[in-house]
């Protein structure tokens, strides 16, 4: 899979092969992770101007743009209709009478259990139905490091 993702980013795949792998990425969290990691590596390298040691997938900028455009259009389909609402990254909000700045700790491993236990008591369910429960089964592996 990693080989093919690299090939996709190099723009070495034809349209059909590219579409195929992009649809596979949709159902493959590990693959998506690889895709993201490769992009992060690419970004970091571009930011530092390390042209001499560019990885293979950055070798052909013109064709890479095609692959990225394809990926971007895929993402656009997923986001259609509500991009306008996109929240900004969460920032701590200033609150009057704020207690002293808290120490930051990792998400408890039982976070989903606490949420499942809590969610049933939130009156917001009167409007939102079951939708907020999606949080209680969220995939927090990144945050908890599990």
């Amino acid at each position: 899979m990693k080989e093919r993702i690299s090939a996709l980013m190099d723009g070495e795949l034809d349209e059909r092969a590219a579409e195929e792998i992009l649809s596979q990425l949709g159902a493959d969290p590990a693959g998506r992770e690889t895709w993201r990691t490769y992009h992060l590596i690419g970004d970091a390298i571009r930011a530092r101007g390390m042209n001499a040691s560019r990885p293979r997938f950055l070798a052909k900028p013109a064709r890479q743009r095609v692959a990225l455009a394809l990926a971007a259009s895929l993402a656009a389909v997923a986001l259609v209709g509500w991009l306008a609402f996109a929240p900004q990254p969460e920032a701590p909000s200033p609150v009057a009478q704020a207690p002293k700045a808290p120490a930051l700790v990792p998400l408890p491993v039982e976070a989903n259990d606490y949420l499942l236990a809590h969610q049933g008591f939130s009156p917001r369910a009167s409007f939102l139905g079951m939708a907020p429960y999606v949080r209680t089964v969220a995939d927090h592996r990144e945050e908890t490091g599990k």
């Binding site: 969460e90 120490a103 930051l104 700790v105 990792p106 976070a111 949080r135 969220a138 945050e143």
Partner: peptide, 11 residues
Amino acid sequence: RTGLAPAMGAI
């Protein structure tokens, strides 16, 4: 461990 965990949306 005393402290605040990363926000999960509004939670």
